[in-house]
Design a protein around this nucleic acid. Sequence first.
DNA 1: TATCTGTTATATTCAAATTATAACACTTTA
DNA 2: TAAAGTGTTATAATTTGAATATAACAGATA
Lengths: 125, 125
Amino acid sequence: MNIIITNSSGLPIFEQIENSIKEAIFSNELKEGEMLPSVRSLANELKISFLTVKRAYDELEKAGFIKTVQGKGSYVSPKNLNLIKEEKLKEIQNYIEKIYEVSKISNISKEEVIELFKMIFEEEI
Amino acid sequence: MNIIITNSSGLPIFEQIENSIKEAIFSNELKEGEMLPSVRSLANELKISFLTVKRAYDELEKAGFIKTVQGKGSYVSPKNLNLIKEEKLKEIQNYIEKIYEVSKISNISKEEVIELFKMIFEEEI
DNA sequence: TATCTGTTATATTCAAATTATAACACTTTA
DNA sequence: TAAAGTGTTATAATTTGAATATAACAGATA
């Protein structure tokens, strides 16, 4: 799995780990039932404290993405990814609606918004 | 003026004040040349330190929204439409960045986001 | 039993935000 | 001109969240 943590991201480390693992689950790089790296091994790999990894795992469990069993490890939960994706699409739709409102009120053209959109989405390389 | 500060917002107090005042300026509730509450009076009203209010005012001045004169007070600067537009563009940019994060994590393609974007923006044009 | 797993408790470090306090400087006005 | 408003500055302390270090504990499994 490809977990990269940066200090320049603005996000705390435990959230970066959370996001990386969510991505891996959505992309099916981590499959249902698959075991995640142990808190200690991932902590060693990333050269951080295992408590930070544990915190990320705890949040992921609370959100229903993984299930942790003492003595065994953490496993990807069976999940209806389509359902989650629908939720995320709605979330995105809400953001776009807000953008629409702001742009309308401030006399910002659709083209200008598209320009920003391209800038941010094509940073990806 | 209606300044509400919450601890649940995640934003530091000085930023919440900044945002409230920007809103008031955008909505013309605070008009050009109008005097803002003094740092001490607003601090008393919100039951916070005047230094926190000062920090908010300092940032607003740095951004060009108000002008502070020692011994007199802080005043709303003459409206600069470009400044306001820049501010709104920043707001939109923040939304797009959030969309980018959500879509990346949830494996939602750029095309799907564009689709939503078109739907919402072409509804009323 | 050894060695993996996760869990818990305690204390510490660190940075950013916020506060408390006191003194100082400028403006207005009674 | 003195008083009472403004803002300014400096210093130290506190608070909070994130992250760490360490040690001890508990369950799973070969």
